[in-house]
Design a protein around this nucleic acid. Sequence first.
RNA 1: GGGCGAGUAGCUCAGUUGGUUAGAGCGCCUGCCUUACACGCAGGAUGUCGGGGGUUCGAGUCCCUCCUCGCCCACCA
Length: 924
Amino acid sequence: MTDTAAELPTLFDHQSAEATLYQEWLAAGLFTADPAGSDLAGGDRDPFVIVMPPPNVTAVLHMGHGLNNTVQDVLIRWRRMCGDEALWLPGTDHAGIATQNVIEKQLGAEGKTRFDLGRQAFVERTSEFVTATGGTILDQLRAIGASCDWSRTAYTLSPELSQAVREAFVQLYERGLIYRGHRVIHWCPRCLTSLSDEEAEFGDETGTLYYLRYPLTGDPSQGITIATTRPETMLADVSVAVHPDDDRYRDLVGKTVTLPIADVEIPIITDEIGVDPEFGTGAVKITPAHDANDFEMGTRHGLAMPIVISPEGVMENGSDAGSRVPDTLLGLDRFEARKRIVEMLRESGALIRTESHAHAVRHCYRCDTVVEPRLSDQWFVKMKPLAEPALAAVRERQIRILPERWEAVYVNWLEGIRDWNISRQLWWGHRIPVWYCDGCSEVTVSRDDPSSCPKCGGSVRQDEDVLDTWFSSWLWPFSTLGWPDRNSADLKAFYPTDALVTAPEILFFWVARMIMAGYAFMDKAPFHTVYLHGTVRDMKHVKMSKSLGNGIDPLDVRAQFGADSLRYTVIAGLGMGADVMLDPNDLEKSFAPGRNFVTKLWNIGRFLLTNVGSDTVLPLDSIDSSRLRRADRWILGSLNTAIAECDAALGPARPRDRVWDEAELYRGLRLSEYTESARRFVWNELADWYLESTKSRLAAGGDDGEVARAVLAHSFDAALRLLQPIVPFITDTLWRRIPVQDADRGEFIAVAPWPVQDERFAAEPEFELVREAVNGIRQLRSDYAIPPGQRAHAVLDTSSAGDSASRDIAVFDEEASFIGRVTRTDVVTDAEGTDQAATILLSSGSRILLSLEGIIDIEKELKKARAELEKLSSQLDALETRLSNPGFTERAPGSVVEAERLKQGEWTARKAQLAQKVFSLGGS
RNA sequence: GGGCGAGUAGCUCAGUUGGUUAGAGCGCCUGCCUUACACGCAGGAUGUCGGGGGUUCGAGUCCCUCCUCGCCCACCA
């Protein structure tokens, strides 16, 4: 605290400051949460907890992470300063498919597959890779200042969290909410695993609708025509279905047709639910093993379910298929087979016609391969019972989702929720804790690995599959806190957590499921606020991604402009729910807001610290109000406003009473508004006005200089604290040099108290008058291009303002030096002895008389004054109409009417003055 | 096909229950290297608040309708 400002270089050296400061913060344990501090565990602080959406363990930091984690960091730093026991819990996700893909790619480069290694060696290799590289993204988060509690870093595949996963599976199984089903599921032929509904993403494509004619058995002159987009599946058809009310096919129902190529006979049946008579020909082929809808129909009618496409996506005669697939097609890729089959059908005359057809095709969310519906055995979670409390939570406002509109999306999805396929045919993940007996048919689901069948004592083998990655991450808000150990200190102190910050893309994947898990396993919502922020996009509104090459590396930005610039830019640009647009081809421009602000802040600090010096300033409380000048009271009042605005923008940290009430429901988390309020205060008020006004006082020294020093130091101190959550590095660097001594100030701004309003200060209208006067002079100077060297003689005349005129003039004289310095050559005196050459009218009714010999163009001024008068007149007319309107006076709030009346008075006075001015300038 | 959202300055967006003369950042124009800052200072221009209709004393804000763009959901073969 004794460092002198003279050491401050002309530019903030973010490179060295960031590394040094972050180490100091860690060494001081600023980010380590203490369970004993939480009032849930006997402490005296409200806990405030955010669990980080765990990035994939193989991920490398991109702007999306940068944005997501900066938002969380701002919130957690804010609450930490507010005195909460703040915990931001970091970690990574083992990311089943994604990680397995990375390793398989590596193996591919070595000419091997995972099967060459075998399961155990493959898992070991993946573990080693994760151990070696898995910390990368967390290190990168440290680099941008993330104030996580690293002592609690979690990993979804750690032994602790794996135990939680197993416990969750067993509990759900015991409650009858997990079952094994033989179903048609989404299958990725490249990843060789099933996918959940959410993992199989739709892509709109223009395909071809093929019309195929199946001849009637025994009478090829008759037949039925069906339409299909996937002719290769026709080999697995077991029936043709028509709607029972469809007269066109009435005579054909019950007869059989001969399936071309496969040469098997299949019946024509009716089905009310699965057939839309309006679509295609109104007749649909049924392929139970290769289509989810057909599977339902096949089940209803007890049909066979032959499989003709293998897991790898090539044609095969699988179970129940007999020899439906001819030798010439066996082993062909499904799309190649489609071409060949279409060709064969065309030759045999079975292909009637084709038409182009726009439809949605599902793709694997990891590798974009077209998903193949496939019949197989999978484990499912029954979601309906789990969804109910999750729905109620939002409806009853135990949980709010911001922006508000996502609540409807959430509710809509939960209302139509379907069971969750949690089996994945992968090796990387939590192996399903189910054992099958070789001897009997016993299925064992167990917390501990059984060595033999509990029923017959025979040998058992574990299910080969692993669980969906999200089956571990849906437990994240409590598994990371020690669950299933209900006595865990962390769980007691920090559950439920508070805010969950993420992108809308994973609302269903993750957020909704976490809420369900929270109720299912903890009987409590895992958090009370879901904040869904926008996506980072380029200037063409395309989402940034590595594969598209339009990404921005946050570490590049940090190297060039510093972590603070990066953080400020994304937070300042983050309207509620709005996307953040950045130009990957022009970092200079994209990050200008942050860079400019950081530099400005640095220069304010340099000036201020240089001029205030290093001697401890007076405590504000010790300064008698009579020693405070108008500017001092004004800046302290402005600070109050800034604090109030920041508080309002950040909003309530938690619901007052477990459930959100109407008034606070959608308040807060306006990060761009918070940033703007803090920016405006420190730049447009503190630097542009107050700091300028103190220059001569500081130079003059003495008692008044001491007051100015103290007010400068204290207001800058508070400004830095308001900004700390956004720009922690530069604020710490400057803050620790401010010569303020305060009992609870501490060593680090990160844990300094959040500013509170000082009720001694309020708005200072007289200073606003000064500001307006100066602005008026500047405008006139600019209009007449008066060179900086030329003195303008200005007189503030408040005599027409009504009361205490003489005092106003006297007070203003006191400030004359201030105005003189702002524009360097403007001088303000009282009204005596000055020839009126130009008048600047101020909103208060006061005016400035300006004498600029030989410069003022009377005609021009006259014209301006007339235009102004005209405008004011029409505005005044409108105002009078409104005030004479009974509807307005009756229904508008009293304060509004009052304000309008006051305004009317002001404007009338101004109008009279303006008219007088026009007259005095020689007009009429 | 269903549901939801958006359209405000050249660009990206604020504008909370209808109520002073609709704002910010970036960009643009003019003048300034004024010993904290040219990553700056001072001044300035640009808006029929998507079109049309309605409710109201009063509409960027509420209602209807149309247009244009997004997003989510859905088994239409």
